[in-house]
Amino acid sequence: MKPAQFEYVSPSTIDAAIAALVASNGEGKVLAGGQSLLPLLNFRMARPAVLVDLNGIEGLSYIEDRGDRIAIGALARHRELEHSPLIASKLPVMSAAMRHVAHLAIRNRGTIGGSLSHADPAAELPMLATFYEAEISVQGPSGRRTIAAGNFFVDALTNCLEPEEIVVEVEFPVLKQDGWAFEEVARRFGDFALASIAVSVRRGPASLEAARVAVMGVADTPRRLREAEDELVAMALDDTTPDRFAEIVVSLVAPNDDLHASADYRKHLLAQLARRALRTALAMKG
């Protein structure tokens, strides 16, 4: 229950951090908030030779208004997103989801860059990145590149980063929407989601003009459900719409049984949450 030995470096620039990763010959690991990495170190499930601590790098924890996008520095902590008035007004789905991110002490330390890199399939930030179609900027030895969130998460706890790349910024497009909702059920408040859904709608004259739907806890990565969005836009809106939507959402997922919940239970939860989320979103006065 104590970490194995490692060399600790605390660079003050991103370039120096990348150089330290390169010098580690694949034996290095990036430390940001440490709320997922430290348990792995304590259990010795991870035994890196070099730990590259990003916390000494200045200027990576901003939340910036870029008009139709909100840019968030990789070291912004969950608590800062939770309490940000800018996020509350421009990214309300994120704002609503943040209090579900783990527990108080973990939100005080955990970072957006760390959570995305860890890529837990039932964690809120990877799901929000997928929902908003965020663009994730990463930096490595050959420079900077931007990855769409839809391509970033490869599998459970697996992202598409090269070993020497570091997430430096995440840009979230501001959605044009009239209504939205975020729903989640976990075994205990703050735990990883058993099932969760985020919904955003934009109204047209007769039906919906646009819809956005993402789910988590029901696959190896968070998923945007484009088929459900298309069907929702094609639907005539009446009292049965939320029920029909829930059916469509559930038909698009195939969760596995695990220790925490059976596949059927997860589907049952998702159907309930989908119905509730769409009702909330449609009832909102935009």
Partner: peptide, 27 residues
Amino acid sequence: CEHGVCGACTVLVNGDSVRACLMLAVQ
């Protein structure tokens, strides 16, 4: 628990509650 589940080691670091088992002393 020493892996950030039980909360018994919570302390305030620069005014924020933090699990002391999920932070290195050098940090």
